[in-house]
Design a protein around this nucleic acid. Structure first.
Lengths: 205, 205
DNA sequence: GTCTATACGACGATAGAC
DNA sequence: GTCTATCGTCGTATAGAC
């Protein structure tokens, strides 16, 4: 059941996520968040200890989805399937968690000063595991000998860009908002490019 | 000849570029810049009207390189040559103008509130011209029918990431600083992937 | 052209009434 | 649990001595 406490906390978190994504941590005023949420500023402080605590809560909310996205590297036996599923998962995050994703990007760009060491360690572990998996596939001759680290950098960048640089993408596409078919087009292009680059044949449907 | 005025202005600009790249506009204090440059804070204001004017000067410094990078699309007749040269140019910017590049990315992420309309229009024109050129090559059957806009998004993202997410890349690669061979490896992977994705054969050396 | 000292506004955070 | 009123601090910008 949704207590008042839970409902308000959720409203504040959601609003804060939008504002932090839009302006960044330092440029965001707690009054911006309060106004947008339709609450007095003091109410924010009743539910969250400080602006920074609120920011950290937003930031940590994206960690679980990001970690989840790596599962194809653990489960899938086929390089093509794993890469395709990973790209799809990352694009889904850019779409469904666009704001939190942007907050995360902002954080990483500046050296992750607010991210907890635990989250950082988990993300690093998953990243390294995926690189190791790709390296293994290459040794087994199941994909072309691309540089596994740079491959991951390219996948991260090209999927993340749909959250981070959404404004730019809307400018160029002339859209007001990206729709399902835009994300599909992105998925097709990125997947196609990666699979051809790795010289693995795409899997059926 | 370097007058005192020119020398100091240059020092402040260079220092500001580093600090803005590191922290972002809002989180940067003018005293941070002053301290790092070894000057009293008032000196900054003697050379620049305001913190924002200084920021804009840093921001505009990256526009010319970014516009220059598009020349291969105007000059080169071969898709493969143009794409390869563009990727190379963009990666060079990420390396040689890493800080200004990061400031630019930060700005675009938040809807370019400080960028001059002229610079914005110029960048948009070049972006659209390159998309048109790719579309033309596709119509002429000289490359695979990829989505030209999403192709550019992927190239922007995967090259820009070496400036924006340098911290992350250093974490994963375990380097202290990226070297020439790292940028070469990046260029190789991205170029390879793009050219294979577009089904154009790479050009010789 | 350089620098100290300070005015002034903005914002994070809280006290305390309801 | 909600909200108004306010405090204290920090940071931009400048006045004015050297």
């Amino acid at each position: 059941m949704a207590t008042i406490r839970e409902r308000n906390k959720r409203l504040i978190l959601k609003t804060a996520c939008q504002v932090f994504a839009d302006k960044g941590f330092a440029a965001t005023k707690t009054s911006d968040i309060a106004d947008k949420a339709g609450l007095p500023k003091a109410n924010i402080y009743y539910y969250f200890k400080s602006k920074e605590a609120l920011y950290r809560a937003v930031l940590e909310s994206i960690i679980e989805p990001l970690l989840q996205a790596y599962t194809p590297f653990h489960r899938e036996q086929e390089p093509a399937r794993a890469l395709e599923a990973y790209i799809k998962a990352k694009l889904r995050i850019s779409r469904e968690h666009a704001d939190a994703s942007k907050v995360f990007a902002h954080e990483i760009m500046h050296g992750a000063p607010h991210l907890s060491p635990q989250s950082l360690a988990q993300l690093k572990d998953e990243a390294e595991a995926s690189v190791a998996r790709i390296r293994q596939w290459i040794e087994e001759g199941r994909m072309a000998p691309v540089d596994p680290q740079h491959l991951m950098f390219t996948i991260w960048a090209s999927t993340q860009t749909y959250a981070d640089f959404d404004w730019q993408i809307l400018q160029i596409t002339g859209r007001k908002k990206l729709a399902a078919k835009d994300y599909d087009a992105a998925a097709r292009l990125i997947t196609d490019m990666v699979l051809k680059g790795c010289e693995v044949s795409p899997c059926e449907a």
